[in-house]
Design a binder for these strands. Sequence first.
DNA 1: TGTACATCAGTGAACGCGCGTTCACTGATGTAC
DNA 2: TGTACATCAGTGAACGCGCGTTCACTGATGTAC
Lengths: 209, 209
Amino acid sequence: MSHTSGARQAQKQQTRRALLDAALHLLEGQNLSSLGVREVTREAGMSPAGFYRHFRDMADLGVTLVEESLASLHGMVLAVLAGPDEAEELIDRAVDVVAGHVREHRAHIRFLARERHGGVRPVREAIGAELARFADEVAAALADQPASAGWSAEDLLMLAELYVEHLVSTATAFLDVPEDRPELDLRISRVARRQLRLISVGRRHWRDS
Amino acid sequence: MSHTSGARQAQKQQTRRALLDAALHLLEGQNLSSLGVREVTREAGMSPAGFYRHFRDMADLGVTLVEESLASLHGMVLAVLAGPDEAEELIDRAVDVVAGHVREHRAHIRFLARERHGGVRPVREAIGAELARFADEVAAALADQPASAGWSAEDLLMLAELYVEHLVSTATAFLDVPEDRPELDLRISRVARRQLRLISVGRRHWRDS
DNA sequence: TGTACATCAGTGAACGCGCGTTCACTGATGTAC
DNA sequence: TGTACATCAGTGAACGCGCGTTCACTGATGTAC
């Protein structure tokens, strides 16, 4: 069992973080599959060989990034679904939270979008598994809402998956806004809110259609 | 002006196709940004230098693949929207067409999913532009349906974008089905149909909500 | 039809370069007594 | 507190390798007369 305190451990953690941050920064402009060990260590200011004290290879580092990228997304959804469940208000909050999240964790979200269908299998599978878990949690949260009375578990999961896909596509839409066109953020928010409202209307009339 | 017939031209086209097919095949397992000139020419059975008679670089080849990948998708949507516009039937046809399309153009669709947010800018931008054009066309087709009476152009585009995103995510869901679990196709089709039905219900009750 | 010349798709060798990974090392930190 | 030894994160050199791109070439196809 290894110690978690001590100057040596602290220093190691700091170097590891520097490697992750360097990779995250470089991944804003390229895929994980074209990112090199030398490239990352150069950016982090250390020698290439040091990389192997922290990660087996780039895929290993990538899986670590998936975990921390989705941890923050995870906290986000809990925050929204813990609020009042009046549809209109929930929609506004959800879209605002996604917009803010993308603004604050840009590199992480870009990484997820880029590698979700990317060429590094362990990373792709980790993202897929996390998103599936995420949909399960949303389904569980939906089940607690009065609006879900009479809904089967299957339909709740179907709806949760629709919401998660919508969230992902909204987040990537925010990502793709060029730096010199910040006014596009407003259009994306407005469209996302309307789409969620349309889904919400469909949900309300689902059974009597 | 160059001739389009003659043995020389025909041979050149054939080699070009061999390069595109070799690339498409290799791209099933990796990103464009990690695909090499030597790798593609080796797969196509020619010498590396020959590549430059056909493409400036890999990004150039990638943009060509985007064009041909989306040309077939384009034909697809026209076929579906040209049919009867009764909601239930249209949904069934749409999902079947997507499923069939993925089965028949697997490599092309995988390429689009992988590079839509990938690390090669010209390719990413070409895909984004084509999908935007696609949404415009869907909006135009929706406008012709009786169910759209009273809808603003903005709302029709919002709806079209929701449909296009749904189509893309359904197509990639089919893609990710492992070869040894073909029964998952049925689940994906069923969920996609229900989601489209829910959107369709929302659409019907949009104005009086 | 035949001949002489032009075009150009594809070749094969060559180049300099940066890559991933290994290895024995060093020196700061940790531990036992 | 001090000393002797153990640990191990990070180093710097070395390796063999495959890369992208260039170049002068060759030989089949095309064209002019």
